[in-house]
């Protein structure tokens, strides 16, 4: 019964792994609910500020902010929102693939690429893949705050302001539902005016104090809020993806245990049968 003991050990170790994965599944499920709540709470602000900014872009303002200028594209920037931890299925790798495709498309047009990563997985991947990572923020935890992303955003906004990059994209996962998360690439700068027919007539805001000061503050806040929202959404995606990944890992472990149990039982039965026939034939010989 040497083989039997080996199989029993294997079953034991798989059972331990299964316990871990099922615990992780439950933790991810409860974190996902909280992350989803946070995502919902942040949505009104992100939507409102996006509306305000698209109104500004659509208005015939006396002052054109540098963030609204379309320039010839020589170098583009990405803010990549990834997770800090692994074991969340294909979430990160799908995102990176989408980003690499987009990078390649820009590269073919002769544009260089700068990357700023949020989350350690993105930083690790693009450091080894070979991208120009100019900034990295990591370890945001389960409760990211709006201040955490300010640094990453500032790096990119400064280089846009200096004319080092001519376009800025935000790359992150979109939470469709628990089962589906889709990578999205969304242009932050320059700003696109709203496609709203009602806003087409000639108008402008009254600015208090003056337009320049106000827009500087508001547009920076806008970019920060979009990135913050992406981080919160990515967090919900991460937990959902981990929950699904751990659920399938637990199921797979169950399948393997069943198979091994069958093999073990067969081996045990064969050993018993063999022993019996040895005894019987031994007795007949006497």
């Amino acid at each position: 019964m040497a083989a039997g003991k080996e199989i029993r050990n294997q079953i034991g170790s798989i059972k331990n792994t299964q316990k871990i994965t099922s615990a992780m599944e439950m933790v991810a499920a409860s974190k996902m609910r909280k992350a989803q709540d946070r995502m919902q709470l942040g949505k009104p602000y992100a939507t409102n500020i996006r509306n305000v900014v698209s109104h500004i872009a659509a208005s015939s303002a006396e002052y054109k902010h540098i963030y609204m200028e379309e320039r010839e594209v020589k170098r583009i920037g990405y803010i990549l929102v990834s997770t800090d931890r692994g074991l969340c299925g294909g979430l990160n790798i799908n995102l990176f693939k989408a980003m690499i495709n987009s990078m390649k498309a820009w590269h073919d047009e002769g544009a260089e690429v700068d990357i700023c990563t949020v989350g350690s997985k993105g930083a690790a991947f693009f450091n080894s893949y070979g991208g120009n990572v100019v900034g990295a923020v990591r370890n945001l935890g389960d409760r990211p705050s709006a201040e955490d992303v300010v640094g990453a955003v500032k790096v990119m906004l400064d280089s846009f302001g200096n004319g080092e990059i001519d376009k800025l994209f935000l790359v992150g996962n979109e939470f469709v539902n628990t089962m589906t998360q889709s990578p999205t690439i969304h242009q932050l700068l320059p700003l696109n005016p709203a496609e709203d027919e009602a806003m087409k007539h000639h108008w402008d805001y009254l600015y208090e104090p003056d337009a320049k000061e106000l827009l500087d503050g508001l547009l920076t806040r806008y970019i920060e809020s979009q990135v913050y929202q992406a981080v919160v959404e990515n967090n919900a995606c991460e937990q959902a993806a981990r929950m699904i990944a751990m659920k399938s890992a637990t199921d797979n472990a169950g399948d393997i245990i069943d198979e091994l149990q069958l093999i073990y039982n067969k081996a045990r039965q064969a050993a018993i049968t063999q022993e019996l026939s040895e005894i019987v034939s031994g007795a007949a010989a006497v």
Binding site: V52, I56, S59, W203, D204, Y205, L206, Y207, E208, P209, E213, L214, G217, L218
Partner: peptide, 19 residues
């Protein structure tokens, strides 16, 4: 409380943007 002082908004106010 606007950056240039308190401001009151009533229906029909002109488009305004303030800190």
């Amino acid at each position: 409380a606007g950056s240039l002082g308190d401001l009151g908004i009533y229906p029909g106010h002109a488009p305004l943007l303030t800190a």
